[in-house]
């Protein structure tokens, strides 16, 4: 179990090299090897979406990948969403304005899912938004305010 494998990944534009056990999940690699604890782990079986990150732009569940599988790839996490320290992106701002988060635990995964969704679907319907969110569980909000926030962010992004 302990034979270590070299991994090189780019996370939010910074290159990291580590030697890790092959069984180490990408989610645990981000959290515990790199200290990027914004990516949360909710179920470890790919159902809740809390650990969603973007791998080469695509939203993926980091608990369903081994860290070694990410070798050579570019990862984006919630820590990279804001345009500058102390500021929020349009999407993050819309979540705040629409009260789209309560305990905040599922929020990073939802932001990463939605950031990809809005790039592909800049003018979504409410039904499309609900469908896009349906892979992420939130136990606090009942989703309505998240739906509102995504529609608000889409409008603001379109209007520039």
């Amino acid at each position: 179990m302990s034979a270590r494998v070299a991994v090189t990944v780019s996370v939010n534009g910074t290159t990291h090299r580590r030697e890790v056990e092959p069984r180490l999940l990408l989610s645990d690699f981000l959290r515990h090897e790199l200290g990027l604890t914004g990516t949360h782990v909710g179920c470890e079986h790919g159902v809740c979406g809390a650990c969603t990150i973007r791998l080469d732009g695509a939203p993926v569940r980091s608990c369903l990948m081994f860290a070694v599988q990410a070798d050579g790839h570019a990862i984006a996490t919630v820590e990279g969403l804001a345009p500058a320290p102390g500021r929020l992106s349009v999407l993050q701002e819309a979540f705040r304005d629409a009260h789209a988060l309560q305990c905040g635990y599922c929020t990073p995964g939802i932001l990463m899912t939605v950031s990809a969704f809005l790039e592909e679907t800049p003018d979504p319907t409410e039904e499309e938004v609900r469908h896009a969110l349906s892979g992420n569980l939130c136990r606090c909000t009942g989703y309505q305010h998240i739906v509102d926030a995504v529609l608000l962010a889409a409008r603001r992004l379109r209007e520039g």
Binding site: R31, L81, L88, Q92, H99, C103, T107
Partner: peptide, 21 residues
Amino acid sequence: VKRKEDARFLSGRGQYTDDLN
């Protein structure tokens, strides 16, 4: 009022128990 706690949660800077070492 918009929530004071949101900025840290939205930027991945919350501090949950498993985030502590």
